[in-house]
């Protein structure tokens, strides 16, 4: 344990590098997952999607139950190793929480508000943009928050398929049994997840207050 601080001091640059890789993998996956997930959520909230809504959410839900390690392993089998398969696996994994919360958020908008907007002569697109999405904001952020935590966690495992990130320290530490190296990966990973969760929870609360 007492080697921890020297190890941290010696490897500060490495830790920063791995952290950067981690954030990059997770960030790219989320940047793609947010528009995709919201698109699915918005599409399913439309009247014409009434029939397929149930089955689509059921399938997405089943997909979500597949453990992230299994999904990453499958990605290796199909796409080989590296950053791209890792991003794709994380992306698939992040879509459901975003899509589901976006849909729930839109559903939670009072019918009266939508009616009023229609009465004022807004088009469907205008209603979506200036009434439904702003009012669903807190829900959507909550979905992004869940997706972010999930992606950071899976991102640590993505080190196994050659995507780098903070997982590199943890896995190397475990296989060589070097506690200080494990902690050099585990502590920043835990802080990254907790920090992202906390930061997005603040944003979520702010949007909730604004909604009232």
């Amino acid at each position: 344990m007492n080697e921890l601080f020297p190890f941290f001091a010696d490897h500060l640059k490495d830790i920063g590098l791995r952290l950067g890789e981690h954030v990059r993998t997770v960030g790219v996956a989320l940047l793609l997952a947010i528009p995709l997930g919201m698109g699915i959520g918005i599409a399913l909230s439309r009247g014409w999607a009434r029939r397929i809504r149930g089955p689509v959410f059921y399938l997405l839900g089943l997909g979500q139950t597949i453990p992230s390690l299994a999904l990453l392993a499958l990605a290796v089998g199909l796409l080989g190793i590296g950053v791209v398969p890792a991003v794709i696996a994380l992306l698939l994994y992040s879509i459901l929480p975003i899509a589901r919360n976006c849909y729930t958020g839109i559903q939670s908008v009072p019918d009266a508000a939508v009616d009023a907007a229609r009465g004022l002569g807004m088009t469907q697109l205008q209603i979506l943009r200036s009434v439904q999405l702003p009012l669903a904001g807190a829900y959507i952020i909550a979905g992004i928050r869940t997706a972010t935590v999930v992606a950071i966690s899976a991102g640590a495992l993505a080190s196994l398929i050659g995507a780098g990130g903070l997982g590199d320290f943890i896995f190397a530490g475990i296989s060589l049994y070097r506690p200080e190296e494990m902690l050099a990966g585990a502590i920043p990973t835990a802080l990254l997840a907790l920090g992202a969760d906390f930061g997005l929870s603040l944003l979520e609360k702010r949007l909730e207050r604004w909604r009232r």
Partner: peptide, 13 residues
């Protein structure tokens, strides 16, 4: 919220 592999990394030592 703590990623599983990070939790292991914290617990093992």
């Amino acid at each position: 919220t703590i990623p599983s592999i990070a939790l292991f990394g914290l617990m093992i030592p």
